[in-house]
Simulated assay, not measured.
Amino acid sequence: MNNTVDDPEVVPRYRIGAVARMANLPVGTLRIWERRYGVVAPPTTQSGHRLYSEADVRRVAMIKGLVDRGYSIGSIATLQTGELERLAFMHVDKTPVSPLTEGRPGLRLRIVGTALAQTIRQHLHAMQAELASEPKVFENMTAAFTERMNQPADVLIIHLPSLHADDVERVLALSASTHAENIVVVYSFAAANTINLLERVGVRTIREPLDQASIAHMMSDIQRKTGQAATQPDMREPAPQRHYSDETLMAMAHASTTVACECPKHLASIIMQLSAFEQYSVSCASRTPADALLHVYLANISGRARAMFEHALLRLEREERWALEKSLTAR
């Protein structure tokens, strides 16, 4: 992205205390990180105060999050922002999601951009739209990145008046941290290839001005998709844990049954292969956040498929009344 002095991403505006609060980090630790590791290099005013930009805040917050996950500060301090985002994205499937609390029916919204939030609220009020709760609003992407969110959202709406190709990775990273099923980017200016890239990864784009008709269409479409998804597994939740170990599966594959076929053996083989692919997807190297999101999805899908086959094998085991312990003892 070509930043200019007018770009709010790079304009110095925050003092160290504010940055420390947003990143949930002691001021003393931030000073040490700067002095010893060079995590950021904010300019200093004539009065001697360091002023940090939104990009600095986001970088500090990502480093803090990775350190909390076990990375040493020395190993990640000098990484580029894109590399930090890729690392953070690799852990998205490990981010805990709290169960949904019972409440009013309707969509759960998170909105990035206070001006956009005001416009959307006005239109939703006029439409008498049904929401589960008042939309959660963030001033900008930096503020959204720095807040840990354990409750999933149905819709994440992001205001990016000037949309660049580099913003795609930031949008994907933020959507992962909010566990949002639907992502909408509202923009004023953007290149056609950037819009195409977002749409290819499932992000809806709407060009300003945002009127009531476009909001109504967006909400109706999302509600329809959300209703359809209600009958499908929630991909924001991790796949079930394994029921059978490889050793147990091998024993069951060779156990004596009344079934005159090799179905138990084939089921055991399929489960082991799915488990192996699940682990492979988790550890597979990802070049971009989009790659990481795909591998998280593949691991989740294979884990759920493995759980379904385990359920089938469990039913077969019960109906055949296998005496696995005897079989293992005899071997």
Score class of each variant (00 low, 15 high):
residue 134 E to C: 04
residue 240 P to I: 04
residue 84 L to S: 03
residue 178 T to S: 00
residue 62 M to N: 08
residue 1 M to K: 10
residue 37 Y to Q: 08
residue 257 T to E: 04
residue 29 T to F: 06
residue 24 N to V: 06
residue 255 A to T: 12
residue 173 A to T: 15
residue 50 R to P: 08
residue 163 L to K: 03
residue 44 T to G: 00
residue 62 M to E: 10
residue 28 G to Y: 02
residue 115 A to R: 14
residue 286 S to Y: 00
residue 274 L to Q: 13
residue 315 R to I: 07
residue 303 G to T: 01
residue 36 R to G: 08
residue 157 I to R: 00
residue 183 I to L: 10
residue 141 M to I: 14
residue 96 P to T: 01
residue 62 M to S: 12
residue 93 D to P: 00
residue 273 Q to D: 13
residue 15 R to Q: 12
residue 7 D to F: 09
residue 283 S to I: 07
residue 218 M to S: 07
residue 329 T to M: 06
residue 168 V to P: 01
residue 112 V to Q: 03
residue 287 R to D: 11
residue 196 N to P: 00
residue 69 R to W: 14
residue 240 P to N: 07
residue 323 A to H: 12
residue 42 P to E: 11
residue 259 V to A: 09
residue 28 G to S: 14
residue 66 L to V: 04
residue 187 Y to A: 07
residue 303 G to Y: 00
residue 67 V to M: 11
residue 25 L to V: 12
residue 309 F to W: 12
residue 121 R to W: 05
residue 125 H to N: 14
residue 305 A to Q: 12
residue 41 A to P: 00
residue 98 S to I: 13
residue 250 M to K: 14
residue 139 E to F: 03
residue 299 A to N: 02
residue 327 S to D: 12
residue 267 L to D: 07
residue 161 P to L: 02
residue 253 A to G: 06
residue 20 A to R: 10
residue 244 Y to I: 10
residue 25 L to I: 14
residue 27 V to M: 12
residue 312 A to M: 13
residue 303 G to A: 07
residue 90 M to F: 03
residue 50 R to N: 10
residue 176 A to D: 12
residue 30 L to K: 04
residue 138 F to N: 01
residue 123 H to E: 11
residue 81 T to H: 09
residue 6 D to S: 11
residue 119 T to K: 10
residue 55 A to N: 11
residue 12 P to L: 13
residue 75 S to T: 15
residue 179 H to L: 01
residue 39 V to I: 15
residue 290 A to H: 05
residue 106 G to M: 05
residue 37 Y to V: 06
residue 301 I to R: 05
residue 98 S to C: 01
residue 2 N to V: 12
residue 62 M to G: 04
residue 285 A to R: 09
residue 98 S to D: 07
residue 286 S to K: 04
residue 60 V to P: 01
residue 5 V to N: 10
residue 191 A to N: 10
residue 54 E to C: 06
residue 96 P to S: 02
residue 73 I to Q: 02
residue 248 T to P: 01
residue 308 M to W: 08
residue 193 N to Q: 13
residue 162 S to L: 12
residue 237 E to W: 04
residue 11 V to H: 09
residue 157 I to Q: 00
residue 212 Q to G: 14
residue 245 S to H: 03
residue 312 A to R: 08
residue 4 T to D: 05
residue 249 L to S: 10
residue 274 L to D: 13
residue 31 R to M: 08
residue 6 D to G: 05
residue 141 M to T: 15
residue 180 A to L: 05
residue 171 V to S: 02
residue 67 V to Q: 06
residue 172 L to A: 13
residue 34 E to V: 08
residue 195 I to M: 06
residue 258 T to L: 07
residue 304 R to K: 11
residue 263 C to V: 11
